[in-house]
Nucleic acid binder design. Structure first.
Lengths: 216, 216, 216, 216
DNA sequence: GATGAATGAGCATTCATTCAT
DNA sequence: AATGAATGAATGCTCATTCAT
């Protein structure tokens, strides 16, 4: 019988319980100010138990990042399988991205900030997770490249740029938007969007349109 | 006589000494790992003296941010005074930005990250600095808007977008590029730039060209 | 049938497996730094199982000591049965001792240090083991005394001292040598031995010769 | 004026206060079981203050060892300056040693045990102290060697052994006796001394007499 | 008998901040 | 203005031990 299997599933469930506790706490108090003690408390585990599932605080936080990247990766893959013009594929991917931000800021925050601050601040703890994240990030970028190539081929995208460079530009735009979202402080930006009665997805759409319809 | 004046100047000089010490240390060890003790040591002050000039650690770090913003603001103002087409003004501003990153990553890091992570993590310590920063950020954005308006008017910029929205997009792109720079990990992105024999300023130029030459 | 017997033997074998794991680990990492977890792992038992065989960590460590003492006791007994002059008996006993150090430092370390540091540090856990050790230590001393008495009687030992006092002195010397061995730091001592081209057994022999040939 | 001087003296006094607190606590509870918290409490300092004077727990403990060695070194030097036959010099040194044990067991314990257990258990923390201790230990040994040489020359010591080797043997005996003292458990040994109405200094005297009067 | 998940008290260490001088 | 000794709350992490299965 699948005894080991069940065990493994149980373990996964507990790891998730901890992850969720961590995410919600980070959402409330910020990264550095969230303590292992509190995470344990919210996950209804004892402090020591946390260390049964994650080597240390750093690993726990990186696991959040990995989860976010994995989620996005899955979504991107599903989008790619749809029978849509390339331009639309890219557009859907970006919307998915922006949705994620709205639904779960911490998730996105983790994906963006943690392990990105400065290499000195993130000591390698669990090399595997670190590697996995880099791998996922690369694949995410490549999925956008693929969609762009499809778009160029099916004529839905009209650009003078190389798909890879365009993907990079789209990635930067995405990143900038995320930063914007994670930062409440940029009042002026919000005000501009308000004035024009637009939201971020609208702006993203406009951005893509500009990029995808370059005069020859 | 300018006794008070001289005093004030002296004070400013000492504040700067502290700021520089902090910046160089952060560059070496990262934000959170830089201690007041070390900053004091490098600034050749005693720990207690730091508190004579900055209310607390948070204020000190925000002051770094403010300084970066101020520097940029000054640069942008000077650029705006040049007798150049609007498109070129924007371009120069962006190059100035990218230069700053290369010259002083911490500076940029401070500007981007600190006080942006999550509002919970930045307790209001020195309201004034906080306000100043927001003000500067807004003005920075508006200086880009102005340049865009000039460009539209002088015909160097051809866009269907509202200048304010375009400024926002340019800002996002800028932000994304900074993130990219501050993050060593994005190997794929670097690889793409390498392949095409391009660097970030090149990509920025391409980006602006696309934005500024939209077919009617 | 010897069902209980077999069970008992099995139990003994498992206790030994644990003991050996503990000894090898202590050898590698030192006393305090060896954890029950690691011992269990190396013994290929689960952590909980250890407690089926030893009441607690302290008991486990004392068991190591006891085993060392028992080994020596057995050796001493065998030596005593040999048809040799008393002086030679003592000499062989000491050599056996020094050999043990070289062959298994942890063993000796356990015998010397553990449970000897300070009485506060060894809470009575398993009174029996504690008692057994004291008993064995006493018997060890008495076996030396017996050998000395034999030596005095057969003329191989010429001393003005009471055999018991002499045994005590020999014991002290032994102890001192063990300390010396367990301590890598005493560079000067090693250097002296080197200079004279001697090793510890040589020095012990010299020591015994001096003790055993006192002018009337 | 000696402002710096006074400061330094004050600092020394505070370091001593901490050391004394540590010694008395170790005496009561044993090495490993004494916590920094308790030491701070007894020294009437806050926990953090301890770290202003000693880098870490290990350093603090090694400082105890160093103090003991220094004390002995001073005593040995004074003895050496006395106008006495060499045999008497050695004898006085040993008595000084034994006295130290009786007066301050922890002191001696520190000197003997700490940093001697096993090299794995004592990570180098404050290299200086470590070095100082080794240096002192060597000098201690050499002072005995000098006394022996004097004794051989003035005829108070009659031995076939090389002074250095003899010093080593005396050192081992000393060590053995210390072990014996630090270990309450060796009941048999105590019983023997009792029977003969002797104490450790008596036995040491006897030991030295045997060593110093070897028939040619 | 064996397991291993869970515990939670315990510990060393850090560091921003204060304040008497 | 400057100091730097002192603080003490806070935190990440360890590990012997227990107990339900």
């Amino acid at each position: 019988m699948g005894k080991t299997e069940r065990k493994e599933r149980e373990r996964k469930r507990r790891k998730d319980r901890i992850l969720n506790a961590a995410i919600s706490l980070i959402e409330e108090k910020g990264f550095e100010k969230t303590t292992m003690e509190e995470i344990a408390e919210r996950a209804e585990f004892s402090k020591g138990t946390l260390y049964l599932y994650y080597n240390d605080k750093s690993s726990l936080f990186q696991a959040i990042k990995k989860r976010a990247l994995k989620y996005l990766h899955d979504q991107f893959l599903q989008i790619l399988q749809k029978d849509l013009p390339g331009a639309k594929l890219v557009h859907e991917m970006m919307i998915t991205f922006l949705d994620l931000i709205h639904e779960n800021a911490t998730f996105t925050k983790a994906m963006m900030l943690y392990g990105k601050k400065s290499e000195q601040e993130v000591e390698a703890t669990d090399g595997t997770i670190q590697e996995d994240c880099i791998q996922l990030e690369n694949e995410l970028l490549m999925l956008i490249v693929r969609s762009l190539q499809i778009g160029v081929q099916d004529g839905s995208i009209n650009t003078k740029l190389d798909p890879k460079l365009l993907a990079l530009q789209i990635g930067f735009q995405m990143n900038g938007m995320i930063q914007f979202c994670l930062t409440g402080s940029n009042k002026k930006g919000l005000q501009i969007l308000d004035e024009k009665n637009m939201d971020l997805p609208d702006l993203m759409e406009q951005f893509l349109q500009t990029q995808f319809s370059q005069a020859g």
